[in-house]
């Protein structure tokens, strides 16, 4: 089991059926955490974005005011840099589309959607909050951190991952050194805030 931060996908389109359809197709891939589609950009306030911290936004270009068409990132608060992919439902100017981090439309296959989203995520990975933070730890360290958050002892983690207790201890020291967080409850909070574990798993 490799726990990775599942990217959070936010869909914004007034086209209800399209929103649901994209939601279902992406959820079926189970590699994303897809948030319930939002019908209007007006409901996507900066506060809400900061709270949700999506990894990528699928935005219907028709939701942008004509002056914002060529700068979709203007919808984001200045301190958030999230890739925005166009979710095209009507005929759209190619100049508009060029400003997005990729585009999908109502004819896109599941595979095409996945590729477009992953490309956008990769481009945005330098700035997208979640992916940026989790790169602090190696994949192995993330796995161990998840086990720590779930309350497993070093011995139990060693058994689960077929490692020696010594190796687990070394990883744990490195985790604490990298994050500057020492207590188990502090590490658990880090894991939750960075979507490495879901609170209901604990």
């Amino acid at each position: 089991m490799k726990p990775s931060a599942r990217p959070h996908v936010l869909i914004v389109t007034p086209a209800y059926v399209v929103g649901r359809g994209v939601f279902e197709s992406l959820s079926a891939l189970s590699k994303y955490h897809v948030v319930d589609p939002i019908g209007s950009l007006a409901d996507v306030t900066p506060e809400r974005l900061k709270r949700m911290r999506p990894s990528v936004i699928l935005l219907d270009p028709s939701e942008l005011s004509p002056s914002d068409r060529t700068q979709p990132h203007a919808i984001l608060p200045a301190d958030l840099n999230i890739p925005v992919v166009a979710l095209v439902t009507t005929l759209t100017d190619p100049n508009t589309l060029a400003a997005f981090d990729g585009a999908i439309n109502i004819y896109s296959t599941q595979k095409q959607m996945e590729t477009t989203i992953d490309n956008a995520l990769q481009q945005g990975s330098l700035s997208a909050a979640v992916s940026e933070k989790t790169t602090e730890l190696s994949a192995r360290e993330q796995t161990i951190l998840c086990h720590v958050a779930r309350g497993l002892s070093n011995k139990e983690i060693a058994d689960a991952l077929n490692l020696s207790v010594f190796t687990v201890t070394t990883h744990r020291k490195n985790i604490t050194r990298k994050l500057g967080i020492r207590s188990i409850s502090g590490l658990t909070i880090y894991a939750i805030l960075n979507h490495l574990v879901e609170p209901n798993e604990l």
Binding site: D79, I181, R182, S183, S185, G186, I189, Y190, L193, N194
Partner: peptide, 19 residues
């Protein structure tokens, strides 16, 4: 030590992970 660690962690979490 344990109480100190928690306070230290709180500081780190608010500086690094909470807008």
């Amino acid at each position: 030590t344990d109480i100190d660690s928690k306070l230290h962690d709180l500081k780190c979490i608010f500086i690094k992970y909470i807008p």
